[in-house]
Design a protein around this nucleic acid. Structure first.
Lengths: 97, 97
DNA sequence: GGTTCTAGAACC
DNA sequence: GGTTCTAGAACC
């Protein structure tokens, strides 16, 4: 599903963390973060996420989906603040295997 | 100075975290982590450190200097456990500038 | 409202 | 003895 199919209620500020996260997780274009098969927890590929989402210049400038931090640990702090469970999809090989 | 010039006392287990950290910080071969100019805090380049020290295969296999984790956040947890102050030397550009 | 650094706690 | 996940606290 794309963002158009699961709009957020007007009471949610689209510029805040939960809304950005929601759009990103539901975006099929994004390969770095997604729902698990049961739709209960978020699965993150840290390497990809840092490269494709957090890294400055990785998203189009002034994108409403860009997070304010570039640090993965700060992003995780936000996840925890909002009580979001996630799994880490890691690749353990430097060459990306 | 190299490791030969500042040996650790025999009472320090060379396989434990503080000893590994000590050797690494004092090693001129290592570019990812070093002392600041006053020799008071450790300066870490996170990107380099992940690539050149934590990443599996980045150090010679079974190196006594290899840490047990591959996660930067776990490494930072160890720093904090031992009360080690550090500064983060970040590069903010995806291409390494 | 978000970011950063550090620490608690449970687990291995 | 180390690792991981989460939370406290101070700061911006």
């Amino acid at each position: 599903m794309d963002a158009g199919e699961n709009p957020l209620p007007d009471s949610i500020n689209p510029n805040n963390f939960p809304a950005k996260l929601w759009r990103l997780v539901n975006s099929p274009a994004n390969e770095a973060i997604c729902w698990d098969s049961l739709g209960e927890v978020i699965v993150i590929d840290q390497q990809r996420f840092e490269r494709q989402v957090l890294s400055p210049g990785s998203m189009s400038p002034n994108s409403p989906d860009a997070f304010k931090t570039t640090n993965f640990s700060s992003f995780v702090r936000q996840l925890n603040l909002y009580g979001t469970s996630c799994e880490y999809l890691g690749c353990n090989f430097p060459d990306g295997r």
